[in-house]
Design a protein around this nucleic acid. Structure first.
Length: 698
RNA sequence: GCGUUCAUAGCUCAGUUGGAUAGAGCAACAGCCUUCUAAGCUGUGGGUCGCAGGUUCGAAUCCUGCUGGACGCACCA
């Protein structure tokens, strides 16, 4: 909060105390102060309607008058900060001292060492953010991109606001479908093993599609698959005897290493420590040797897939603190089932195990009739493990809104466990009870809308990498076009120059360079000058612009609205787009360096009489709202709040840029340079928070 | 059928948590590059905030009903 608002907050608080003898908190006082919809109404306002609850009586206009009269005799207390206080209808409007405001904000940003807006809560929260979470046998598509960038961006936001964030990628590595995959893998003889290692996810997906098709005609395949899954799960459970309570005990003791081996992180080794590979020759060894071989096979699948995903994450600069998998929790699903059955929280129904929930008609299904685990039961175990490991205050699941029911059930289950804690026997369940009871109320499902109508021109699913490629190609076209225009204007300049050298022009055309009257060398053949370095620069820039366009496209609207996908929208880099923001930053970079760099010892003051003062004031006003935008983005788990905010700031800056020249004009550019830098600081910060690459130049 | 959710300019979306005159961007049209990057800027046109009630001093925002769309509804994840 700036000093202007701060002083209003304390003034209003005191006034209410003095006049009506009511104590209110600073936060409440702050809530009374609104930002008027238009600058002509001032910078802050107090609506009479809100004051009625503190005992102010009469028509709104009369109340406004009364409040105004409180301010007037005391105006000395605030006159330094405000130019004008006026009544307008039911509102008392405050006009800040613009010169003080503008220079104050610029000074704040300059003094923040690039950390303007960073939060430092008294009690930082420990927040787990579970996002991206692709299925290892399904290609990484645009749906996962949404979860990935929303999750990453929320992680960045919480962290920047001073909280302790743990980013987890919870791989979809388990479930009935893996029985299907194993079945398919062992069934078909024509698998291309080289392709399998290079592109495992696609290969697994193809297998899945193939067996699914075959199962439609031959339902017995489904039975084989279910059996294979059962074998897989039971095999894992057998290998990890001990049960949930023991496991929680070892987590308490600091042993957080995965129970199903370190496969997820280190690769799958044979007993001599060599990396295990599947080949045409070794395949039968995995397929025909009972559960152990199949478990190994499955471990290799998930390991290869994980590696492939990591390549994608690296490309778009996404990082996780931990990778987890569902399988880990599947091992203990049975223990959960037993506890909940014994305590009466869960009950049997048609051979399966369900938990009836309040307010939700569909009962939660936590075990299938063949005893194997389900998505929901694994999520219960996972949440308990995470509470034991990380003691989180809040856990956010960034998952599509189509899974609302699932997460409502998950939350409902922990509520019921907490309510019925006494029904669960203390014996052998102490740790379970401790951790499970803490979870209620701490889970948040951050849902997002679907992406509708996205397909290639042939109507197929779009893979993320192709999506980015498409955007990058478009960016490259645009970039080359711009360079060409630059060249053309350069040639025009040369033509002007050429008037002087008209006689020599033909000859000059063949020359590589020309010396202009100022003594600069002018390249005549920019095409030829497209050196390797330049080409590299172009493809680098294009890639980052493409990525920026794609990511920003996912973060610019509120998460819950479905995205109506249109190629034209993503491939346009004008207006409310990522490239527009990137462009704005690189424009500032260029300007700052042309003005000779920053000097923080410069004078921060602006004069009301300056031609550009009003626009500078508007820019600083926008900058001052950064903290609010951050808070609001965090409270609502909504990155788009920052997107809108950044677009507004960029737009204000670009207008300024267009209207006033800094080079060669009479304006004192030193304080303005700091203003530029402040805009850049905030925009760069937001781009970082939103996972949009920042470009030095474009 | 039940549940969740959405409906704002031709299109894509904002709308400060119930407050002042509903705003942007695309697209259309008209302008602006001898001068700091035109991925930019300026201007014009474009609205019964799905419909009907209700609550309130005050509703795009809250409640009810209706219409229309999306998603979900026990052995998938």
């Amino acid at each position: 909060m700036d000093i202007f608002k701060e002083s209003l907050v304390s003034f209003i608080k005191t006034a209410i105390k003095e006049k009506k003898n009511i104590d209110i908190a600073n936060e409440e006082s702050e809530k009374l102060i609104k930002n008027p919809p238009d600058v002509s109404f001032g910078d802050y306002s107090l609506a009479a309607y809100y004051m009625a609850r503190y005992g102010f009586k009469g028509k709104p206009e009369e109340i406004a008058e009364e409040i105004f009269n409180i301010f007037m005799p005391n105006s000395a207390r605030i006159e330094d900060l405000f130019d004008k206080i006026e009544i307008k209808g039911a509102y008392v409007n405050f006009f800040v001292n613009k010169e003080r405001f503008a220079s104050g904000i610029i000074q704040d940003v300059a003094g923040s060492n690039g950390n303007y807006g960073r939060g430092a809560p008294e009690k930082p929260l420990r927040v787990i953010i579970d996002f991206s979470s692709p299925n290892i046998a399904k290609p990484f598509g645009v749906g996962h991109l949404r979860s990935t960038v929303i999750g990453m961006s929320l992680s960045n936001i919480y962290e920047f606001c001073g909280h302790d964030v743990i980013k987890i990628n919870y791989l979809g590595d388990f479930g009935t479908q893996f029985g299907k995959l194993i079945t398919a893998f062992c069934r078909y003889d024509d698998i291309d093993f080289d392709k399998f290692e290079v592109n495992p996810v696609k290969s697994l997906y193809d297998l899945y599609v193939r067996i699914h098709k075959e199962a439609e005609e031959n339902p017995s395949i489904d039975d084989v698959a279910r059996n294979n899954f059962k074998e897989l799960e039971e095999g894992l459970v057998r290998g990890n005897a001990g049960g949930l309570e023991d496991r929680l005990g070892s987590i308490d003791g600091g042993q957080t290493e995965s129970v199903i081996g370190t496969a997820l992180n280190k690769g799958v080794m044979d007993n001599k420590g060599r990396q295990l590979r599947i080949t045409k020759e070794s395949k039968s060894r995995f397929c025909d040797s009972g559960p152990d071989g199949k478990i190994t096979l499955w471990k290799i699948f998930r390991n290869l897939s994980k590696k492939e995903f990591e390549g994608i994450y690296e490309k778009i600069d996404i990082k996780f603190d931990y990778y987890e998998g569902e399988a880990e929790s599947a091992v203990f699903s049975n223990d959960i089932k037993e506890i909940l059955l014994k305590s009466g929280i869960a009950e049997e129904s048609e051979g399966a195990v369900i938990i009836p929930l309040k307010n939700i008609k569909t009962p939660a299904l936590i075990a299938k009739s063949d005893g194997t685990s389900l998505y929901l039961s694994r999520d219960i175990v996972t949440a308990i493990f995470r509470m034991a490991k990380y003691n989180f205050d809040k856990m956010i699941y960034v998952v599509g809104s189509e899974q609302s029911l699932h997460f409502n059930q998950l939350c409902g289950i922990f509520d019921i466990i907490k309510e019925n804690l006494n029904e669960i026997s203390e014996k052998d369940n102490t740790r379970f009870k401790r951790y499970a009871s803490l979870i209620s109320g701490r889970l948040v499902h951050v849902k997002f809308g679907r992406i509708i109508g996205m397909s290639t021109r042939k109507g197929n699913l779009v893979f993320l990498e192709d999506y980015i490629k498409e955007a990058s190609i478009k960016a490259e076209e645009k970039l080359k076009e711009r360079l060409k225009i630059l060249d053309d204007s350069m040639n025009e300049a040369i033509t002007d120059l050429g008037k002087k050298l008209a006689e020599d022009w033909d000859g000059a055309k063949g020359a590589e360079t020309l010396i202009n009257p100022a003594g600069d060398r002018v390249d005549l053949q920019p095409e030829k000058e497209l050196t390797e370095r330049k080409k590299e620069q172009i493809s680098y820039t294009s890639l980052k612009v493409g990525i920026g366009a794609v990511i920003f496209n996912d973060l610019k609207t509120r998460r819950t609205t479905d995205v109506n996908f249109k190629w034209d929208n993503v491939l346009s880099f004008e207006g409310q787009t990522g490239p527009y923001l990137q462009y704005t930053v690189s424009r500032i970079n260029s300007l700052v360096s042309k003005l000779g760099g920053l000097n923080y010892n410069a004078d921060f003051s602006f004069l009301k009489s300056d031609a550009d003062f009003n626009d500078i004031f508007l820019i600083t006003k926008q900058i001052s709202g950064f903290r609010d935008a951050l808070d609001s983005a965090m409270d609502q788990n909504e990155p788009s709040v920052l997107s809108s905010y950044a677009l507004e700031l960029a737009s204000l800056f670009n207008r300024y840029y267009q209207n006033y020249r800094l080079i060669g004009s009479g304006l004192d550019y030193k304080p303005r340079l700091l203003m530029l830098s402040a805009v850049r600081t905030v925009l760069t910060r937001i781009l970082n928070l939103l996972c949009v690459p920042v470009l030095e130049r474009m």
